[in-house]
Design a protein around this nucleic acid. Structure first.
Lengths: 341, 341
DNA sequence: AAAGACCATGCAAAGGTTTGCATAAATAAA
DNA sequence: TTTATTTATGCAAACCTTTGCATGGTCTTT
């Protein structure tokens, strides 16, 4: 059963030539006679020779593999980014190993260790919400593995970065709510350790301040995670205030949708009694009722660009021209869950 | 900059012993003197020796890598399965390479070719909706690579399989619709090439027949894909019939949600005028309004079990006890998009 | 005819680890 | 003291491919 693969030596033996000649023939080395090349190629084809990449890896000391570290994969956000990464890397000779940190710093460390063990050639990473020490990434860099950070920033880490202007997205959303006449705008904020959550919160705060609106502490509630269920209690808390908000800007679409859910249960009319705006523009957000106003971000492009930057590094490692920092602009998409201006 | 790794030979040289002795010392070979082992281990630690897996791969002729082929990753369905796979494989020494076929037979072939080139040790695959020839998978098997098929069956292929009883899920859903008083039940069916779509359609047909209900051809419409937009036109077609259905059983939740969307636009009341039932039970399905009745399937478990079966094969390849075929039972979840019985 | 130039191919090392077999040293038995 | 036995370690091959250098041969030039 154990089909043993045909090697270059097998071909050499059969043709009574040296393995090195076979190797060169297969790569069209100019110094070889045409007939030799042809003979080798013909036999290689006949024998179904396939180069042993494992041997090549050892020789070149590289695994031709890229590690991708994401907190999770079930959200549309990260799965779309990964699709973008795949679509770029797929055309190269690299393979992708996707690793899930489950929003855990410890798991992230374990993953980095594993990736370094298997000698990946580069790493794309969006850190967990628990991570605020980036020594493990520095260690990667020090061992010569380029690191590209995407979406979630790693403050203090010097590396290539592909980010989104979360501040601007939040600012746009809140400013729009203000213009539409909302006076009491609440924010369901993400885990504060996260750069994205931090910037969205700041955008919210600045938009209010910019418009001379008061900032009310009880209108800012943090959600523990990013799935629907994480938004339920915080929303209830908001809506059961003596003076409930007339608008909610949620840190992402899932949270916004569960806010809508709770609001409807508590008999708030959307958007008449309360406007709700999310962040992400997941595909299903336009299909909920009322359809969700939200901040779109170019997920697929984030993945593609990150991958391209890494690939660029890998392919011409001579030119060290410092690190790139790319920031995508998100865009407000107005639908039916918020009042018209 | 190029930190060259510490090798076993470096340690050997420093200690004036043979590399083989170092190797054995690190694996606690019984024939070695305790002192030798200790000295080696101490130095290994001091020098931060890390075994070169690339070399091991070549020696053992295996890459310690598992290929996972899925049509896409942005749906909750496949991303949850992948999470299950990861959670199982993550505890082993294997790495996972996830490949997206984009529902294309050609891309699937290319992927299989690539995986075989890099000598993966096993493959988990859910075929594209275009695939109905499985020779590429047979080729993998013939070259000694075990294949586990999940969710979407490959009829005629002899391999391990982890499937869902789609027939039963559909039957339950349609029978429930009948009991709730619906007389004109339509089906938004998936691409007919897919085993899952086929079985769901059959469940639909048999449930009708079993209850002496007529089967009306115009009530069966195929959707081209599985995302929201794919359900829009087919739903319109159904609802604009002179005699529109009073229930729709959709082949998945996304399609069901876009059916709800269209129904509301056309001023059908849900569920009074029309009941809608989906398939999958994605997390957001309970957050749409009205919440979606659907057929739940154990996505995470599908991933875990598939991975376990493959791992089992890899770890004791001696015992060839034929192929396993595991079939999960789905369950109907009744919410608000369908009438109560 | 001798020297130089060129062409086609082979040799051998390198990459890091494992492992069966051999060997050396030390101890026990005769 | 010699032989048998054990104990601890080393040698070298194997995994497969690539590549700098060397070699042998043919051809051209003087």
């Amino acid at each position: 059963m154990k089909k043993t693969r045909v090697t270059i030596t097998d071909i050499a033996r059969e043709l009574n030539i040296a393995p090195s000649t076979v190797s060169r023939a297969l790569k069209d080395h100019p110094a070889l006679k045409r007939e030799t090349k042809q003979a080798v190629k013909a036999l290689a084809k006949k024998l179904d020779y396939r180069p042993n990449l494992l041997a090549l890896n050892l020789l070149q000391k590289k695994s031709n593999t890229i590690g991708v570290i994401v907190p999770e994969i079930t959200s549309h956000f990260f799965s779309a980014i990964i699709t973008g990464i795949q679509d770029v890397i797929g055309t190269s000779d690299y393979n992708i190993i996707i690793c899930l940190s489950n929003e855990s710093y410890d798991e992230e460390m374990t993953i980095v260790d594993k990736l370094s063990k298997i000698q990946v050639d580069g790493v794309l990473v969006s850190p967990s919400s628990e991570t605020n020490n980036f020594d493990h990434l520095v260690r990667l860099q020090k061992s010569g593995i380029p690191v590209v950070v995407f979406d979630r920033d790693c403050p203090g880490l010097e590396s290539d970065k592909v980010l989104v202007d979360d501040y601007s997205g939040a600012f746009q959303a809140v400013e729009y709510l203000i213009r539409s006449g909302c006076k009491k705008i609440a924010h369901l904020s993400g885990p504060i350790n996260l750069s994205t959550a931090k910037h969205r919160l700041q955008g919210y705060l600045d938009a209010l301040e910019n418009n001379n609106m008061p900032i009310q502490k009880e209108y800012i509630v943090h959600v523990p995670g990013f799935s629907h269920k994480d938004g339920l209690k915080p929303t209830k808390k908001l809506l059961k205030l003596k003076d409930p908000p007339d608008a909610i800007f949620a840190t992402n679409d899932n949270i916004a949708i569960s806010a809508m859910h709770i609001a409807e249960k508590l008999e708030f009319r959307i958007p008449e009694d309360i406007s709700i705006v999310g962040f992400d523009d997941q595909p299903n957000s336009s299909y909920v009722t009322p359809s969700l106003s939200t901040v779109w971000q170019p997920v697929y492009s984030i993945g593609m660009l990150s991958a391209r930057i890494l690939l660029h590094h890998l392919e011409e490692e001579d030119t060290k021209i410092g690190f790139r920092k790319e920031i995508f602009k998100p865009e407000l998409v107005i639908r039916k869950s918020s009042k018209k201006i």
